[in-house]
Amino acid sequence: MARKEILIVGDRLYTDILCGYHAGVETVLVLSGEATKEEAKAYEHQPDYVMSSVDELHEAWIKSIS
């Protein structure tokens, strides 16, 4: 699988998003867990996308394939 085909989804900046950054893959921060939008804006390694929930991510994915 190519890196461009991988997306890491997580709610923690210092584990999930940082892991994706170091792996060289796109990341999605979901705000339904630990991190806040303000923390994400201030974080050194910005997520590629920020969504309010996994449901919002699912809706975006469905729209992208239809």
Rank of each mutant, 00 (worst) to 15 (best):
H45G: 11
A35S: 15
Y14H: 10
A35F: 13
L29A: 12
S32F: 07
A35R: 07
A60D: 07
P47H: 04
V30W: 04
H22I: 03
Y21I: 02
H22R: 13
A23R: 03
V30D: 08
V50M: 09
S32I: 00
S52C: 04
L7W: 07
S66G: 06
D16Y: 00
I8P: 03
D11T: 14
S53Q: 10
L57F: 10
L7T: 15
L7R: 05
S32D: 15
L18E: 04
M51L: 08
S52K: 03
E56V: 05
L13V: 07
E56Q: 08
S64N: 00
D11S: 13
G20M: 07
M51Y: 12
E56S: 08
E44H: 11
I6G: 01
V54D: 00
Y43I: 02
E34A: 13
M1C: 07
E39W: 06
D48P: 00
L57H: 08
G33H: 10
E56Y: 00
L13P: 12
Y49P: 07
K41P: 14
C19T: 10
S64V: 01
G10M: 05
I65N: 02
D16Q: 06
S52D: 13
S32P: 15
S32K: 07
M1R: 09
H45N: 12
Q46A: 12
D55P: 06
S66L: 02
E59Q: 06
I62D: 05
R3D: 14
V25P: 15
W61M: 04
I65Y: 01
M1T: 15
Y21R: 12
S53T: 01
V30F: 00
G10P: 09
I17C: 02
R12K: 09
L13M: 05
Y43N: 11
S66F: 01
G20V: 00
G20Y: 13
V54T: 09
V50G: 13
S66H: 04
T27P: 11
S66M: 03
G20S: 08
L57C: 08
K63H: 10
E38P: 15
A35M: 12
I17A: 02
E34N: 15
E56D: 10
E39R: 15
K63Q: 09
V28I: 11
D55I: 01
V50N: 06
R12T: 13
Y21L: 02
G33I: 10
V54R: 00
Y49F: 10
D55C: 02
D55K: 03
G10C: 04
L18V: 02
S32R: 06
A40I: 08
E26F: 05
E59T: 09
E38H: 12
L18R: 15
M51H: 06
D48T: 09
A42Q: 12
M51I: 11
E56R: 08
G10A: 04
A2K: 14
H22W: 05
E44N: 06
D55M: 01
A42F: 08
K41L: 13
T36H: 07
L18Q: 09
E34K: 13
A23N: 06
H45K: 03
E38A: 14
D11K: 15
E34Y: 14
Y49L: 08
E26T: 15
T15F: 00
H22V: 06
E56A: 09
I8S: 07
Y21V: 04
S64F: 03
G10Q: 00
Y43C: 07
Q46I: 02
T27M: 09
V25E: 09
I17G: 06
G10K: 00
G33V: 14
S66N: 03
Y14V: 05
G24S: 10
L57W: 08
G10D: 14
V9A: 04
A40D: 14
